[in-house]
């Protein structure tokens, strides 16, 4: 079974800034049962405190927070932005994909991160995700 749940996916969302994008990606985690609302605020707090380093690769942001800040299960959400948004990263802006990540236990989130990294680290996969027209197509691309 894919870890990518339909409730955790939103395609071509229109947002006005990075915080709104993180907020939406967190809402998806809540809908999919991966986290409580507290987790969303913890992700925003993290972004505001330590900045845009969550943009780990060109076009890709991975908001996350500590498991004890409201994570319920290990998972991730996928938010595709209609118009790319500046997160303030010198090299990797603008962002078109926001993948919020949750994990439980000491290493759950890192396992999740590594899985996501394998998928998104492939340039071709990234392009396919940008072109996919619905969840069914996405679930064939993201098979973790």
């Amino acid at each position: 079974m894919s870890l990518l749940r339909e409730e955790a996916v939103l395609l071509d969302a229109e947002v006005s800034d990075a915080v709104e994008a993180i907020l939406l990606s967190g809402d998806l985690l809540v809908k999919a049962g991966y986290a409580s609302e507290e987790y969303t605020y913890a992700m925003i707090e993290g972004f505001q405190n330590v900045g845009p380093y969550i943009v780990i690769a060109p076009g890709i942001a991975i908001p996350h927070s500590r498991p004890e800040r409201g994570a319920i299960a290990t998972g991730f959400s996928l938010l595709r932005l209609k118009k790319p948004i500046e997160f303030g990263h010198e090299k990797n802006d603008p962002v078109n994909l926001v993948c919020a990540i949750t994990g439980i236990g000491n290493n759950g989130h890192v396992e999740m991160l590594q899985k996501i990294a394998t998928v998104l680290g492939d340039q071709r996969t990234h392009e396919q995700i940008l072109k996919a027209s619905n969840y069914t197509e996405l679930s064939k691309i993201i098979t973790i």
Binding site: G46, V50, Y53, I56, I62, R66, N107, H109, V110, L113
Partner: peptide
Amino acid sequence: CGMGFGTSLM
């Protein structure tokens, strides 16, 4: 990394 448990561990 910013928080010391996510991207830095990866």
